[in-house]
Write a protein that binds this DNA or RNA. Sequence first.
DNA 1: TCCAAATAGTTGAAAGTTAAAGTACTTCGT
DNA 2: ACGAAGTACTTTAACTTTCAACTATTTGGA
Lengths: 164, 164
Amino acid sequence: MAPTKTEARWLNPREMKAWRNYIIASRRMLEALDGDLADYELTLADYEVLAQLSDAPGRKLRMSELAEIAMVSKSRLSHRMKVMEAAGWVRREECPEDRRGYFAVMTDKGFKAIERAAPTHVGSVRNRFLDHLSVKDQEDLAKIFDRLQSQLRGQFIEEDGTSK
Amino acid sequence: MAPTKTEARWLNPREMKAWRNYIIASRRMLEALDGDLADYELTLADYEVLAQLSDAPGRKLRMSELAEIAMVSKSRLSHRMKVMEAAGWVRREECPEDRRGYFAVMTDKGFKAIERAAPTHVGSVRNRFLDHLSVKDQEDLAKIFDRLQSQLRGQFIEEDGTSK
DNA sequence: TCCAAATAGTTGAAAGTTAAAGTACTTCGT
DNA sequence: ACGAAGTACTTTAACTTTCAACTATTTGGA
């Protein structure tokens, strides 16, 4: 089935500029953020995983939940966990309540690793993003992207018929 | 050298919301756009490469230039070109002016392929992005991301000492 | 002119990602 | 309480991307 029913009239210059400025700047910004983390042997995606884990109670989360909130697939998380486990940053723990399941648990070493990276990362986010936005810009962006996000969720439900 | 000198004070709730809403929605949107193109055996990155090529005079561009404007690395472009060449969408042509160089040339088949995908893609961009923005939102976003982009370029120059 | 350095592009290997299938366990309906 | 279907997670294999090294050519001095 076609993913969209909107007729395909071309983008006008204003639309084009909004769209292209947005994706180009975003791609470059993400690249830069990733580059900034490279000094800590981390990618943005791995950072996200560790950050979420470090915020969890007991620095411990079910694999699925971690995958969900860090926005990576289960398969990818599995693979990355193997790498991070080898680095001594996390370990897996069996879940007694549901024996199919596992917890991802952050080790002290992992916590230190992300504690070390966090100031730089936050600095990058300011440096490359927030510092260039007025308070109003920040509020506008938050609103706009919140709208986009909920719309996306809506379309997802429509498309595959699943409600979660 | 540290990539940033900004002190690492934590993000306040407003900053946090702007940043997180932005990356989360962006990631999901990009995923969705990619998904929409999958029906045409294209990724967003490949689409971008072909779209740029189809816009070029003679549907023909030097590899480096194409890599630059489509925002992929030279190496990646080389590899993708091999795949697209096998699909019959592009071919390489020697450059007589600079015998180290090559042109990427879009074939008729390639042009047809992107012509087929374009309406859907434009539809997706409307559907998932533009339709949810007021005219003012579009203008604001264009301005903000333009600012971010030029800032990024500035930092890039600082960091590696290169001026291009 | 000659050579060192820079540039254009490709390549191969390593690392990362995804998609599909596999294992193990739980849930649900009867 | 049984079996089918569903869920949690992992694994394998195919594919993609990156990184560094390589070839070929051009450029820019001395």
